[in-house]
Simulated scan of single mutants.
Amino acid sequence: MKRALALSLAAAALSLSACSSPAFALEEPVNAPAPKRIAKEGAGLKTAIFAGGCFWGVEGVFSHVKGVKSAVSGFHGGAAGTASYNRIVTGGTNHAEAVMITYDPYVVRYDELLRIFFSVVTDPTLKNRQGPDVGAHYRSALVPMNAEQRAVAQAYLKQMGASNVWKSPIVTRIEKHRKFYAAEQYHQDFMAKNPSHGYIVRWDAPKVRALKVMFPSDYRANFLRDAS
């Protein structure tokens, strides 16, 4: 009886969790400009945080990028007490759905990750929304973890604004690093675990296909799963 109840609650949580049901036209990938400012982060694994709408798709794309060693969905920008999905979706917590990635800069540089992010993951002209998802917790933001990342991010956003690739102004902002809180376990590796989920099929799988076509040298077919 307890097991049946637990399974029922888990199913209900999954059906209500994360991102809105699809109701809008598909997003289109954009050929973001090649960065002029090349990241020089040195040897050793680095981490960076990206917020770009529903974290399922952000994590899903970066989990298919060569050189990415870990991709964890979570919340950034708010306090520990409100760092849960059911709380942040009600608004007012200052969190953003975000993904913290660990990567090898000798395989994929931070500037290359930025280009991938703005080409196939997020629309930098949308404020407090992405695709069908609306709210400040779906904002597009970069969270540099060191001075070099910050300099590269600032230079690239400026370059994007002057590129005329986007018809509307760039609204993606750089946010100061605060504590990152991993999301509930059912959100981790969501695309790999739920490939037939309606939201994944309509919104996120096309982003991975665009990554494969637009960045073939950076694409890896297998999905990098979280070790936990």
Rank of each mutant, 00 (worst) to 15 (best):
M1G: 15
K2T: 15
R3D: 15
A6C: 09
A10L: 15
A13K: 10
A13Y: 09
A13Q: 11
S15G: 05
A18M: 12
S21F: 04
S21M: 11
A23I: 08
P29W: 04
V30G: 00
A32D: 00
P35I: 04
I38R: 07
E41P: 02
E41A: 00
G42L: 00
A43Y: 03
L45Q: 10
F50R: 01
A51N: 03
G53C: 02
G53N: 03
F55A: 01
G57P: 08
G57I: 01
G57Q: 06
V58I: 12
E59I: 00
E59G: 07
E59N: 06
S63W: 05
H64C: 06
G67Y: 07
K69E: 14
S70F: 03
A71F: 11
V72K: 00
V72A: 08
G78V: 10
G81K: 14
S84Y: 15
N86I: 09
V89C: 15
G91S: 06
N94S: 14
A96W: 09
A96N: 14
A96H: 13
E97L: 05
M100K: 15
I101N: 13
I101M: 11
T102L: 05
T102I: 11
Y103D: 08
V107M: 06
V107P: 02
V108A: 10
V108S: 10
E112T: 04
E112A: 14
L113D: 01
R115P: 02
I116M: 07
F117G: 06
F118T: 08
S119P: 05
V120S: 05
V120I: 10
V121F: 05
V121N: 12
D123C: 08
P124T: 08
L126H: 08
L126C: 08
L126S: 11
K127V: 02
R129Y: 12
R129G: 10
Q130W: 09
Q130L: 08
V134L: 13
G135T: 10
A136N: 13
Y138A: 06
R139F: 00
L142I: 07
V143W: 06
M145W: 03
R150L: 12
V152W: 03
K158P: 05
Q159M: 03
M160E: 04
S163Q: 05
S163D: 03
N164E: 14
N164Y: 09
N164L: 02
W166P: 06
W166A: 05
K167F: 02
K167L: 10
K167A: 15
K167Q: 11
V171P: 07
R173D: 15
I174Y: 01
I174D: 04
E175I: 07
K176A: 15
R178K: 15
R178F: 13
K179E: 07
K179M: 04
K179G: 03
F180P: 01
F180M: 09
Y181N: 06
Y181L: 05
A182M: 13
E184P: 01
D189R: 01
D189T: 10
A192F: 13
A192D: 11
Y199T: 08
R202T: 14
R202A: 13
R202D: 11
D204K: 01
A205P: 00
A205E: 11
P206K: 08
P206V: 09
K207R: 13
V208Q: 03
R209S: 14
A210C: 05
V213I: 13
M214H: 04
F215M: 04
P216F: 09
D218R: 12
Y219F: 15
Y219L: 04
N222P: 08
F223S: 07
R225L: 15
D226H: 15
